[in-house]
């Protein structure tokens, strides 16, 4: 009976996720060693001839990753974009989370809701908003070019640039940083700051010696939540980046949809998976550091 209940609870979700999460992962691993098909897709990975099986697998797709520095550069650039996005998110989220945590209790829920609200509008709507703001006819670009004109500089175009991509990446992921940071800051004991003040600590000292170290676990949690989705994104560079702003996600999409080279697309996807897994494990370690407040 006990075992029956266990199977009844565990099996349906386990079988479903085995079929649609574990198997796809394994198929992708296999695909990364297969030859591309003649018309896109995949070539058969084994042949049966006279009852003998011949496997038709290759390491070429993985070797292609290192043939030129193109893909490594792209990967580095994506990592750089993700690092910058995470850092700017932290920079913007910190004063916001601090202000909300210092507000009267009855206002805090509303202030947090106001952070999440834009996040609930459709993802593409939020990207589209920046396409309008950065458009060459937009007020922002015209205003900027008015200033550059006065200074005798070349006019700038914000659309299809790294600046546009990173601004939108920050915009889309900001709540992921604010929420864990606020959850952490809200729990700090005000008595700690009082004690520090009584002992003669200045405002800056109170922040850097008390609030900042205590807030690190919240900051780490937020960093992981921003960094991982940022690294794999393709819609934002696709719509705002032009040719300069592309990231690894764009090349993965290109391999699967446009050039239909699935084996190489799988290789790139597995590299991204590998980086994600390392980050998840690292984050788990950081969360368990002795002395860390969670």
């Amino acid at each position: 009976m006990k075992n029956g209940a266990k199977a009844l609870l565990t099996l349906p979700p386990a079988v479903y996720l085995f079929l649609f999460f574990a198997v796809p992962g394994l198929l992708m691993l296999l695909a990364s060693f297969r030859f591309p098909g003649d018309y896109g897709g995949l070539a058969p990975w084994y042949y049966v001839e006279d009852g003998a099986i011949t496997f038709d697998l290759t390491l070429e797709n993985w070797a292609r990753l290192f043939e030129t520095t193109l893909y490594l550069q792209l990967l580095l650039k994506s990592l750089l974009f993700a690092v910058l996005t995470t850092a700017i998110c932290a920079l913007l989220a910190y004063p916001l989370a601090l202000t909300i945590a210092a507000s009267p209790k009855k206002h805090r829920d509303l202030l947090i809701l106001m952070v999440i609200l834009p996040f609930w509008s459709n993802f593409l709507v939020r990207i589209y908003a920046w396409m309008i703001i950065f458009s060459p006819q937009g007020a922002l670009t015209e205003g900027l070019n008015h200033i550059t004109g006065l200074l005798g500089l070349e006019p700038v175009n914000l659309m299809f640039s790294s600046v546009a991509v990173i601004t939108c990446l920050v915009y889309v992921h900001l709540p992921f940083m604010v929420l864990p940071l606020y959850a952490n800051l809200e729990k700090h004991d005000p008595a700690l700051l009082d004690a520090a003040q009584d002992l003669g600590a200045t405002r800056a000292q109170r922040f850097w010696k008390v609030t900042w170290p205590l807030s690190l676990p919240g900051l780490y949690a937020g960093a992981v939540l921003v960094f991982i989705p940022t690294l794999g994104i393709f819609a934002i560079p696709d719509l705002l980046g032009g040719t300069n702003g592309i990231m690894i996600g764009n090349v993965i999409k290109q391999q699967f949809v446009e050039s239909r080279d699935w084996p190489f697309g799988s290789v790139l996807s597995l590299v991204l998976t590998g980086i994600t897994l390392v980050l998840v494990v690292l984050a788990g370690r950081l969360g368990r550091t002795p002395g860390a407040l969670t």
């Binding site: 999460f21 992962g25 794999g232 993965i252 697309g265 996807s269 994600t276």
Partner: peptide
Amino acid sequence: AMPDILIGVS
């Protein structure tokens, strides 16, 4: 935990 794109392509 996985980026969406990986779920999509796999």
